[in-house]
Structure formats: structure tokens, C-alpha cells
Design a protein around this nucleic acid. Structure first.
Length: 835
RNA sequence: GCAGAUGUGGCGGAACUGGUAGACGCACAGGACUUAAAAUCCUGCGGACGAAUAAUCCGUGCCGGUUCGAUUCCGGCCAUCUGCACCA
């Protein structure tokens, strides 16, 4: 009786998808809800990747279990369909992206259905559908109205060969991914979203959600909060000053020069005073020509030019110090200018070495001999005479000044007047107080996070619903006009100088100003791919609503997403962007929760059989269709869950998947010897209870691989004496159902049941029956296993002790030795310490 | 450089809050069935020394520590992977 997976899988899929078995009920009042979410795919021409089902199967298992536990489950699916590949394909083959997208979606849908996922297909969404992106545009307008969307001139990646703006992922090692020409930065006026306004809340609210710790850490690192101070350095001979940001105000006494970024306005301001203006301007221009890649290239020599003719004054030492221009200072961070403390900053140290600038130590390691000497003499200013410190000087070694000393944990201030003798952490506080008290500057917080560049010079994206009028400036179109539909075009080539293809659609661009009614023009840039995915989970709650992005009632009931699984590669962009949008929607009263996702987990990547990342060029791509064809969906699902820990990478193995197929065949063939019986047999009772306990908790902890191992062990047990009864078989099938839904439903119905497994409650276990009455107690001597005895599970020490001392191996072993100590851990172990 | 993760048989991997290391699967070997092969079923399978399923020793990246007992805890290294990266 061999198993025909093709027939069985088709039968059940037809039943599920035609009858809408998994459509989430609209019962908003009487049932607990559970909303499970996976990252909706981009429908690429290559079809589904074997990596997609890993995540989808995992949450499908959880969703199926939750249904059996009585939850009203929402497990939806959709397509994130705007994006580059469709547009590039259109350029090459002159096929409208709409057509390729539709074709690809149809293919994906078939593939997903062939795997038996319990998605609610009645709620399928598509980000390129105008009824969907109407609300993406609506959210943008709300952001604009609250001042969170603004225009700014920002550099774009521009390919000198294709004359087109490129996305970051299209720039590989500084050249264009397609033609290999160098990529330069080109200034362009673009829409920006003020995500920085939410930086602090995006950090703080991580405390309230259940995300994997590594996800929280990555998000925090990305946001990059740092505390420090802004300090003014006077420009010598003027009332003006240069503002810097520092996280180490305790090192100001060691600031021996300053540096401004090439783009800093300072240069323009002092043009007439700078005596080497030509040289400075030349440096500035050279820096502008460098790409981001070149500028941040590793191990590169520092470059810079001194700005001659003006000096700054260190506010604490009152010494005149030089000002330099260098591209190691970034205009985008802090104030675009720094005070350089070469003794205690690695980059400043390198720069000072190269240009022979003074290096003045103001911190000393707390365990150095020199510190003891200094303390004994009560003279923290001993080194003010720098001529004494040279490479030959013994003291120099103690300073560790062959490199910058940056350790904040282990530093003591010296050469720093009122800070002398303080550990760095205290010195920071005291220095900051001093700065504020004396009007030199103030305490500040900085973030690495930049505002979100929201414009793309592309066709296949949501049009930005903004209009420019000569008199009124930028204004959003009226909300009644939404959606602003993407016009159908035939020429997908970019416009002049990397403009969007829409810039050539003269008729579409022409419009009236929404404020004054005069002739005006539309924005031709479109939104980035991240836009549609920043709120899609909300649309699932009420996907067909044309009055709002979702009804209040639906949002109240389904929010937040209970469990969101996705890849680590989306931790810093998609996950952060969607949290930002959600917080904004919360602020304007659209959504009821501060955070969109209660819980976030991640899956590991599936590698090729050679242990490398799957890629066409390496020829190690596994096509899911071939796998389903050869082994069936159930085997595919079981294998992907069995292959290793869910959150870690795992290589594909054709041999191992065969093993999973064999296991399912054995499950099927148990029908040949199943006996009548409506309770567990005595011999299987403990095993069944243990299995229910283990599988139930494994699923919640995503330890699917060990659940599959439990199933295999059980089957081996049933085969030992070819003994299983109907009650045992049924519970076994219920537990296995989330993993292998088709086969288990089929056997279940053949065993004679008026319900499908999907309609039965999840099995429960009896806590009293998960421990054997008799347990094996290992006996160790000096921590090494020597023998074992059987004992009742709650046996007291004296009982076990007697058993142990009657054990022949142990008697032999203890001969001629002295027992020092005996340790018994109830039901676990007996250890004898001997001499 | 910073942050995070990982390191256990030939391979993928188990091991609860410190308590029998190697569950389960793959590969491999032997056997049963078969004219034969495939499939299936049964058995073995970390290493050393053994005829041995007798005893002993070694063994969870390396070195050391705590403990009756360490894959697990602590300190110090090494290697690999993934993010980020001149963030002052």
C-alpha cells in the first residue's frame, strides 16, 4: 500500500482552498485572536526560493496549532510587487511591469498553494494594486501634513555609463552592477521622511516587545545613540565660534587642533581671511568627486589641508590651535566639525602623526606605574612640558602612546586642571557641567540614524502624490483624488540626468495647483520599495475597505501582529521603517497600538548542497517545484523543519530529504497494523504523554527539528512490535498534522472520523504521566559513569543507596577504596567520591 | 576596528535550570527477502587497545579555573560566519 502523495495532496489542497477552510473568521467578539505574519514575497521571475517555505512552514505550523487550540487565526499572504527587476525587464523587453508582475504572482500563488500553507487567500494583497497603494499615498500625505516629509538636496548614486540613478544595492564595489562604469554622487532634490524624530522612541519601545535579543541590539546599533556635548571653540580675533560635537568632553584639555568636513559652511564664511584659499578649495573639490565608497575605503591614508590665516581657541586651555579640513570628518554626523584629541582618538592620532600635529596626553591608564608616581607627587600636571616626552622617554611607554589610549573604563585624567585624578566617566560628567555653567556649550544626544531618502527616480513604484506650483510651492493632491495612478507608459528608459521615466510624461505631469488652481506640475519621482511593506500587515486586517486603510473595528481586534517571522537582513530597514510608520499612525490616532509587532523571530538561510549561498552563477539553486514533484509537499515541509535549528543557516541535502520521505512512508504504512482501541495502551501511555508535552513546547520555541526527531522515535517504537491502536495513531496524527497536513488528514479520515484534524482540539497531556514509574539512575564514581540501577521515580536516598551498594560492578569497584562522600540527586544521578 | 552568533562523530545535528555526551536522520558495513537489483525489514556504527556486546583510557575548537560532577558556569586565547563601519 504505497503512498500516492500527488493524489492526496491535490485532494486536500482543493478542499482547503475551494472551501476557504482557513479564512479568518470575522467573529470579533467571542474568540481570542492570533495574527501570525511572514514577510510577503517579492514575486520575482525566478519563482519561489527554497528559503521562503522555511519561514512560511514554521509559522504555518504555529498557525495550525493555534487554530486547534481554539484561536481565531489570521495567517495572511500577499505580494510586495513594486521593484527593480520588473522595471529592468520592461526596459529590455518592452513588456509592461504590470504584466510581468501579474504573471509572476500567478506563478507564486500556485507554488505556495502546492505547499499546503494555511493562508487566508481571501485576504491576499498586492502593493501595486491602486486600491492598495491609495493608502500608501494617503499615509505619505499625512506624514507631509505633520511636517515629517520634506524636500532636501541629497546625493544619489549616479552611473556614469547608463546615466541613471541607482539604488544602493545596484552599486557593487563602487561600480554599476550592470555596466561596470564608475558610480558618482549626484546632488538631487528629494523627498525625505523624518525618521530621526522617532529615533528615541524606536529605541525605548523595544523594551515593550518580544523581539529576539540580537534583533534589538542590531536596531539599537543602527540607530546609534550617543551622549555627549556640543562645545563652542572661539575663532581667534572674532566673536564667532566653531561648534563641535564630542562624546568625550573630558578630553578637551587634549584638543590640539580642529577639523571641519569638506562640505562645512565654515570655509565659505571665512574665504577672505583664509590665506591658502586655493589649496583649500582644491581639496574640497577633490573630496566632492570621490564616491562614498572611495571615501570610506578601509586602511586608506588620511588626507587634509590646514586652513591658514585663522585659528581657534581651546576654551579650556585658552591656547590657539590650528583648523584643518579633511574628509575623515563627515558633514552628516554631529556638527560636521570636531575638536581633535590625538592622544585619545585613533583617527585623530593617525592624522596628527601624518601631519606632525602635537599630541597631548590627558588620560592615563589607571594601572600604569606612571600614575602611581604622579599620585605620589600630587602633581597631575607633571607632563605639561611636552619637550620632556619623547619616544626615548620611559614615561612614553607607560602612556601607551604608540597608539591612542581610548579606554573609557580604565582612564584617569591628568594635565586637565580641575579634572585631574578623576576616572574618565566622572570626568565626563564634571567637564559637561563646567561647559554648561560657563556657557561654552551644552549636553547633547546624537544618532547615527539619518532621515529616510524617500524618492526614487524610477517608474515601477507608487507615484508621490505631490504637486509643485510656482506660487504655492509643494502641496499634496486632495485626498479625494487618491489613488494617484501610475500612468501606463511604453518608454521605461530614465529621463535626462537620471530623472524618473515619468519626467517624460508631459501630459501626466501637467496639473492644477491644489491650493490656487494655477498650472502646476506633478512630482515625477516614485516611492521606494520599502513604502508598501511599511504598513501591509494593517491591510490584512481589512483588505477590501475603500473608506480607510482598515476599519477601526478590525484594527482594534487584530492589532498587534502576535508573531512576525522574517530574515535578519530586514532588521534595520524594513523592520525599523515599519515601526516608524506605525508609531506615526498611532500618533495621529489611526492604529491602537504603539508597536506593530508583539514578537519577532528570524529564520536562518538555506545554503546550497556545497554549503555556499544559493545563486544562479554558482549553479547550486534548488527549485522548490522539483522537490514537490519528486517528494511531495509534506516531505518538503518536514525536511525543512528537520534540517537544523530554525534560526541558523543550514545546507541543503538531497540524501536527508529522502530520509524524511522514508519516515512519512512509515507513518502511512502503520495503517497496515493499526488495531482498534480508544485509549492509549499501558505500554505507550508515557511515550504519548511525553510526546504531546515535548511537541507542544517545541513548536512554541521554534525547535521544530527536535519535534520531528520525537515523531521519528515514536514511529520506531510503533514498529518495534508492529503495535499501535487507533487512539494512539490519531493523537500522533494530530501532533504531526501542522508539519505534514495532507497525509495526516488523509489517514485521519481513513481511520474513520467525521471531523478533519483541523477541526479537532490540540491534544493535551497528563502531567502525572510524563515520567516513568521506574527510572534509570546512573551511578558515577568520582564523576565517571560506572554502572546504572533501576529505581522508583521518587525513591529516597537510602533506598537508592542500598541498590547502589548491591550493584556488582560497584562492589567490585569500591574494593580497597575509601568512600569520602556520596551525592544523590533525586531521580537523576548517584555519585560516589572515593580515595 | 565595533556588535552579534557559531565551533560536538565521516555529515546535518541532540543534550531540560551543572547530572548517563553523541537522541533523531544521513552516509557506511553486515544480514533477511529476491534469479538479481531497487524498495522494505533487522543489526552494528566517536577514537585507542581488545576475539569481545570484558576491562581500561582518550574525547564537545585551544589553555586554565570553580565543582563530587562542566558541551553547559568563570577567565584568557584561536577559528569561522553575519551585520555595521572614519558616527568624533
Amino acid at each position: 500500500m504505497s503512498y500516492n502523495f500527488k493524489k492526496v495532496e491535490e485532494k486536500w489542497q482543493k478542499k482547503w482552498y475551494e472551501e476557504g477552510t482557513f479564512n479568518a473568521s470575522q467573529d470579533f467578539k467571542n474568540k481570542k485572536k492570533w495574527f501570525g505574519l511572514i514577510e510577503f514575497p517579492y514575486p520575482s521571475g525566478q519563482g519561489l526560493h527554497v528559503g521562503h517555505p522555511r519561514s512560511y512552514t514554521a509559522l504555518d505550523i504555529i498557525a495550525r496549532k493555534k487554530r486547534m487550540e481554539g484561536y481565531n487565526v489570521l495567517y495572511p499572504i500577499g505580494f510586495d510587487a513594486f521593484g527593480l527587476p520588473a522595471e529592468n525587464y520592461a526596459m529590455k523587453n518592452h513588456v509592461h511591469p504590470k504584466i510581468t508582475t501579474e504573471k509572476n504572482i500567478n506563478h507564486f500563488r500556485e507554488q505556495l498553494k502546492s505547499l499546503g500553507f494555511s493562508f487566508d487567500w481571501s485576504r491576499e494583497i498586492n502593493t501595486t494594486d491602486p486600491s492598495y497603494y491609495k493608502w500608501t499615498q494617503w499615509i505619505f500625505i499625512q506624514l507631509y501634513k505633520k511636517g515629517l516629509a520634506y524636500k532636501a538636496t541629497m546625493p544619489i548614486n549616479f552611473c556614469t555609463g547608463c546615466k541613471v540613478g541607482l539604488a544602493n544595492e545596484e552599486v557593487v564595489n563602487g561600480v554599476c552592477e550592470r555596466c561596470g562604469s564608475p558610480v558618482v554622487q549626484k546632488e538631487k532634490s528629494q523627498w525625505m521622511l523624518k525618521i530621526t524624530e522617532y529615533a528615541q522612541r524606536l529605541i525605548d519601545d523595544l523594551d515593550d516587545v518580544d523581539f529576539l535579543e540580537k534583533i534589538k541590539i542590531q536596531q539599537k546599533n543602527w540607530i546609534g545613540r550617543s551622549e555627549g556635548a556640543e562645545v563652542n571653540f572661539k575663532i581667534s580675533g572674532t566673536d564667532d565660534s566653531l561648534l563641535v560635537y564630542t562624546t568625550r568632553p573630558d578630553t578637551i584639555f587634549g584638543a590640539t587642533y580642529m577639523v571641519v568636513a569638506p562640505e562645512h559652511e565654515f570655509i565659505k564664511k571665512y574665504e577672505d581671511k583664509i590665506t591658502n584659499l586655493e589649496e583649500v578649495k582644491e581639496y574640497k573639490e577633490k573630496a566632492a568627486l570621490k564616491s562614498d565608497f572611495e571615501r570610506s575605503e578601509l586602511n586608506k591614508e588620511k588626507t587634509g589641508v590646514e586652513i591658514k590665516g585663522i585659528k581657534a581657541i581651546n576654551p579650556l586651555t585658552n591656547e590657539e590651535i590650528p583648523i584643518w579640513i579633511s574628509d575623515y570628518v563627515l558633514i552628516t554626523y554631529g556638527t560636521g566639525a570636531i575638536m581633535a584629541v590625538p592622544a585619545h582618538d585613533t583617527r585623530d592620532f593617525e592624522f596628527a602623526k601624518k601631519f606632525n600635529l602635537p599630541i597631548k596626553p590627558v588620560i592615563i591608564p589607571k594601572d600604569s606605574d606612571l600614575l602611581k608616581e604622579v599620585e605620589a607627587e600630587f602633581d597631575y600636571n607633571f607632563a605639561n612640558d611636552f619637550s620632556k616626552i619623547s619616544k626615548e622617554d620611559e614615561h612614553f611607554k607607560d602612556y601607551g602612546l604608540t597608539e591612542a589610549f581610548t579606554d573609557i573604563e580604565n582612564g584617569i585624567a591628568i594635565n586637565s586642571d580641575f579634572l585631574n585624578g578623576l576616572p574618565s566617566s566622572e570626568a565626563i560628567v564634571k567637564a559637561t557641567e563646567y561647559i554648561e555653567k560657563n556657557g561654552l556649550g551644552k549636553k547633547t544626544v546624537n544618532y547615527k540614524l539619518r532621515d529616510w531618502v524617500f524618492s526614487r527616480q524610477r517608474y515601477w513604484g507608487e507615484p508621490i502624490p505631490m504637486v509643485y506650483c510656482e506660487d504655492c510651492g509643494w502641496n499634496p493632491i486632495s485626498e479625494e483624488e487618491l489613488p494617484l495612478k501610475l500612468p501606463d507608459i511604453e518608454d521605461y528608459e530614465p529621463g535626462e540626468n537620471g530623472e524618473s521615466p515619468l519626467s517624460k510624461q508631459t501630459e501626466w505631469i501637467k496639473t492644477k495647483c491644489p491650493v490656487c488652481g494655477k498650472d502646476a506640475r506633478r512630482e515625477t519621482d516614485t516611492m521606494p520599495q520599502w513604502a508598501g511593506s511599511s504598513w501591509y500587515f494593517l491591510r490584512y486586517m481589512d483588505p477590501h475597505n475603500d473608506k480607510a486603510l482598515a476599519s477601526k473595528e478590525a484594527l482594534e481586534y487584530w492589532s498587534p501582529v502576535d508573531w512576525y517571522n522574517g530574515g535578519m537582513e530586514h532588521t534595520t530597514l524594513h523592520l525599523l521603517y515599519s515601526r516608524f510608520w506605525h508609531k506615526f499612525l498611532y500618533d495621529i490616532g489611526v492604529v491602537p497600538t504603539k508597536e506593530p509587532y508583539k514578537k519577532r523571530t528570524s529564520h536562518g538561510m538555506i545554503l546550497g548542497t556545497n554549503g555556499e549561498k544559493m545563486s544562479k552563477s554558482k549553479g547550486n539553486v534548488i527549485n522548490p517545484d522539483d522537490i514537490v514533484q519528486e517528494f511531495g509537499a509534506d516531505t518538503f515541509r518536514v525536511y525543512e523543519m528537520f534540517m537544523g535549528p530554525f534560526d541558523q543557516t543550514a545546507p541543503w541535502s538531497m540524501e536527508s530529504i529522502r530520509g524524511c520521505g522514508k519516515f512519512l512512508d512509515r507513518v502511512w504504512n502503520m495503517q497496515e497494523f493499526v488495531e482498534e482501541g480508544d485509549t492509549f495502551t499501558k505500554e505507550h501511555e508515557i511515550m504519548m504523554n511525553k510526546a504531546i508535552k515535548k511537541v507542544s513546547s517545541d513548536i512554541e520555541e521554534m525547535k521544530f527539528n527536535t519535534s520531528v526527531a520525537v515523531f521519528m522515535t515514536m514511529v520506531n517504537e510503533f514498529y518495534k512490535d508492529k503495535k499501535i491502536n487507533k487512539a494512539e495513531y490519531k493523537v500522533f496524527l494530530q501532533l504531526l498534522n501542522p508539519f505534514a497536513p495532507h497525509m495526516t488528514e488523509e489517514i485521519f479520515s481513513k481511520l474513520g472520523s467525521d471531523k478533519t484534524i483541523n477541526e479537532t482540539p490540540w491534544p493535551t497531556f497528563d502531567p502525572a504521566k510524563v515520567i516513568d514509574d521506574e527510572v534509570v539512575i546512573p551511578i558515577q564514581v568520582n564523576g565517571r559513569l560506572k554502572s546504572k540501577v533501576m529505581a522508583p521515580k521518587d525513591a529516597e536516598e537510602d533506598v537508592v543507596k542500598e541498590l547502589v551498594h548491591n550493584d556488582e560492578t560497584i562492589i567490585n569497584y569500591l574494593e580497597g577504596k575509601t568512600v569520602v562522600k556520596e551525592i544523590y540527586v533525586k531521580g537523576k544521578i548517584f555519585n560516589i567520591v572515593v580515595k
